[in-house]
Deep mutational scan, measured.
Amino acid sequence: RYTFRTRGPEQMKRVVEWARRQNLSYRVEVHGDEYIIHAE
């Protein structure tokens, strides 16, 4: 189980790509310009 905090969509997309390659399920929360990605 991982939690990532990123700023801006570019970093968020990179984390999502990584999670997909690992076959993890993930969800993204948006708080202003901060993205929180939960993957497991």
Rank of each mutant, 00 (worst) to 15 (best):
R1S: 12
R1Q: 11
R1K: 13
R1E: 07
R1C: 15
R1L: 08
R1F: 09
R1P: 10
R1V: 13
R1T: 12
R1A: 10
Y2I: 09
Y2Q: 04
Y2R: 04
Y2P: 02
Y2M: 08
Y2E: 02
T3G: 02
T3N: 03
T3H: 06
T3A: 04
T3D: 02
T3Y: 09
T3L: 10
T3Q: 07
T3V: 14
T3R: 07
T3M: 10
F4W: 13
F4N: 00
F4E: 00
F4V: 05
F4C: 07
F4D: 00
F4G: 01
F4S: 00
R5H: 12
R5K: 10
R5L: 08
R5G: 02
R5F: 10
R5P: 02
R5N: 05
R5S: 05
R5Y: 13
R5W: 10
T6P: 04
T6Q: 02
T6D: 01
T6V: 15
T6W: 02
T6S: 04
T6F: 09
T6Y: 03
T6L: 11
T6R: 04
T6M: 07
R7V: 10
R7G: 04
R7P: 05
R7Y: 11
R7M: 08
G8S: 15
G8V: 15
G8T: 15
G8F: 15
G8M: 14
G8L: 15
G8P: 01
G8Q: 15
G8K: 15
G8W: 15
G8I: 15
G8E: 15
G8Y: 15
P9I: 15
P9N: 10
P9E: 15
P9S: 13
P9V: 15
E10Y: 07
E10Q: 09
E10R: 07
E10N: 07
E10H: 08
E10G: 07
E10M: 09
E10L: 08
E10P: 06
Q11M: 13
Q11I: 10
Q11Y: 06
Q11W: 06
Q11K: 07
Q11N: 13
Q11D: 10
Q11L: 09
Q11E: 13
Q11V: 09
Q11R: 08
Q11P: 04
Q11G: 13
M12D: 00
M12H: 02
M12W: 06
M12A: 10
M12K: 03
M12L: 11
M12F: 11
M12R: 03
K13W: 12
K13L: 14
K13N: 10
K13A: 11
K13S: 08
K13T: 09
K13C: 09
R14N: 07
R14P: 02
R14G: 04
R14E: 10
R14H: 07
R14M: 12
V15I: 15
V15K: 01
V15M: 06
V15R: 02
V15T: 03
V15N: 00
V15C: 11
V16M: 05
V16C: 05
V16E: 04
V16S: 02
V16T: 06
V16N: 01
V16F: 04
V16Q: 03
E17H: 05
E17K: 06
E17D: 11
E17G: 05
E17N: 07
E17W: 06
E17I: 06
E17Q: 10
E17R: 09
W18R: 01
W18G: 00
W18N: 01
W18M: 02
W18Q: 01
W18I: 02
W18S: 01
W18E: 02
A19Y: 04
A19V: 14
A19W: 02
A19M: 11
A19Q: 00
A19I: 15
A19D: 00
R20P: 00
R20A: 09
R20Y: 05
R20V: 14
R20Q: 13
R20L: 13
R20E: 13
R20W: 05
R20M: 13
R20D: 06
R20K: 14
R20N: 09
R20H: 07
R20F: 06
R21G: 09
R21I: 08
R21Y: 06
R21K: 11
R21D: 08
R21N: 10
R21E: 11
R21A: 13
Q22G: 05
Q22H: 15
Q22K: 11
Q22D: 02
Q22L: 13
Q22W: 13
Q22I: 05
Q22E: 09
Q22F: 11
N23F: 07
N23Y: 05
N23Q: 10
N23E: 06
N23K: 10
N23A: 06
N23D: 05
N23P: 01
N23G: 15
N23V: 03
N23S: 07
N23T: 03
L24P: 01
L24M: 14
L24R: 03
L24S: 01
L24G: 01
S25Y: 12
S25M: 11
S25I: 14
S25F: 13
S25E: 09
S25L: 12
S25T: 13
S25C: 06
S25P: 05
Y26T: 09
Y26W: 12
Y26Q: 00
Y26S: 03
Y26G: 00
Y26A: 04
Y26M: 04
Y26H: 04
Y26V: 15
Y26I: 14
Y26L: 08
R27N: 08
R27W: 15
R27T: 14
R27Y: 14
R27V: 13
R27A: 07
R27M: 10
R27Q: 09
R27G: 03
V28N: 00
V28L: 06
V28G: 00
V28F: 03
E29S: 06
E29A: 04
E29R: 04
E29G: 02
E29F: 12
E29N: 04
E29W: 10
E29M: 08
E29K: 04
E29P: 00
V30A: 09
V30D: 04
V30R: 14
V30W: 07
V30L: 11
V30G: 04
V30T: 09
V30Y: 10
V30P: 05
V30Q: 14
V30I: 13
V30H: 10
H31T: 08
H31R: 11
H31L: 12
H31K: 10
H31I: 14
H31W: 11
H31Q: 12
H31Y: 12
H31G: 03
H31C: 12
H31N: 12
H31E: 13
G32E: 07
G32P: 04
G32Q: 06
G32W: 04
G32C: 04
G32F: 06
G32V: 04
G32L: 07
D33F: 07
D33W: 06
D33G: 10
D33M: 07
D33V: 07
D33E: 11
D33Q: 08
D33H: 08
E34C: 03
E34T: 12
E34D: 09
E34Q: 09
E34F: 14
E34G: 10
E34I: 14
E34R: 06
E34H: 11
E34L: 14
E34S: 08
E34W: 15
Y35V: 05
Y35Q: 03
Y35G: 02
Y35L: 04
Y35F: 12
Y35T: 04
Y35S: 03
I36K: 02
I36E: 03
I36D: 01
I36M: 04
I36G: 00
I36F: 07
I36R: 03
I36W: 12
I36V: 12
I37S: 00
I37H: 00
I37V: 08
I37A: 00
I37M: 03
I37P: 00
I37T: 00
I37D: 00
I37Y: 01
I37N: 00
H38I: 14
H38L: 08
H38S: 05
H38D: 03
H38E: 08
H38K: 05
A39W: 11
A39C: 15
A39V: 15
A39Y: 08
A39M: 14
A39F: 14
A39D: 00
A39L: 15
A39R: 01
A39H: 02
A39Q: 01
E40N: 10
E40T: 11
E40Q: 12
E40R: 09
E40W: 15
E40M: 12
E40V: 11
E40L: 09
E40D: 10
